[in-house]
Amino acid sequence: MSLLPGVRKRGFWLYLIPGLVLFTIIILVPLVWNIYLSFTSYRGIRPPEWIGLDNWVKLMGDDKFWVSFQNSVAMIVAMVVVPTLLGLVLAALLFDLVGKKFGGKFASFLRATYYLPQILPVAIAAIVIGWILRPENGALNTVLDAVGLGALQHNWLGSPDTALLSVMVVMVWVQIGYPVVIFMAALQRVDPELYEAAELDGANWFQRFTAITVSIIRPEIYVVVLTATIAALKVFGPIYALTRGGPGDSTIVPSYYSYSEFFQSQQVGYGATIATALTVVIVVLTIIFILAQNRSERLENER
């Protein structure tokens, strides 16, 4: 039943037509087309030529592709693991300690500061840190020199040993505010009496934190981990702005790899294969997360 008595439901379809038509043209058709292209050899000029699984076979043996996924794991560490763990502690401290003993205003101010990098276009955020890491006369190198640590000066983004690590630092900086804001909102659900009871039972801060806080805000932890993991797998802007995947392939990620196959190497079929593989990974991960979340909610309810 529609919410309108006496009004035929079918008429509502009219309102869905513009949205669905647009969606089909802009999302569905290109998506299917891209999957089709992954089975072709296509250089963008003459029509695509069907080559079956050749691209996929090549992909499985392509070291550069596997490196790009390894780097995605590094992005997950920088954008999911570190920010979520740090975010839990920071949110709990801001909420419990700063908010209650030093004033809610001050806690909100700190929260806004943590969130600041999140509002920037991510390519600009990367450029801000990239400027500090400049090889010649960069701020970090100059400061190191000034404090007598000149030996530690380094071409942070330009040498293979530190480039990935530098990008990871950028991403931690960008990402840290997101879990803090969400967890702080979630903490408002926690009943203070639970803490008092636990305190009376002799539980220390860490025990209360793991047993009460973490278990109550678990839904938000799932949301943060899922959305941040998807974002980590999609990282493109910072790589494009800072390293273009280099030096060598040391910071290449799947999205940049497919972009460069599309528009630099003109290997459109192979680029489509990489993009399709990335899509499959993201969709599978999303499904696993949602199933895991439902399962943990069920277990929680059964207790």
């Binding site: 998506l31 087309w33 999609k234 497919s258 459109v268 993009a275 993201i282």
Partner: peptide, 8 residues
């Protein structure tokens, strides 16, 4: 990911 629609 937007790459999956990009070329088409």
């Amino acid at each position: 990911p937007q790459e999956a629609m990009l070329y088409p």
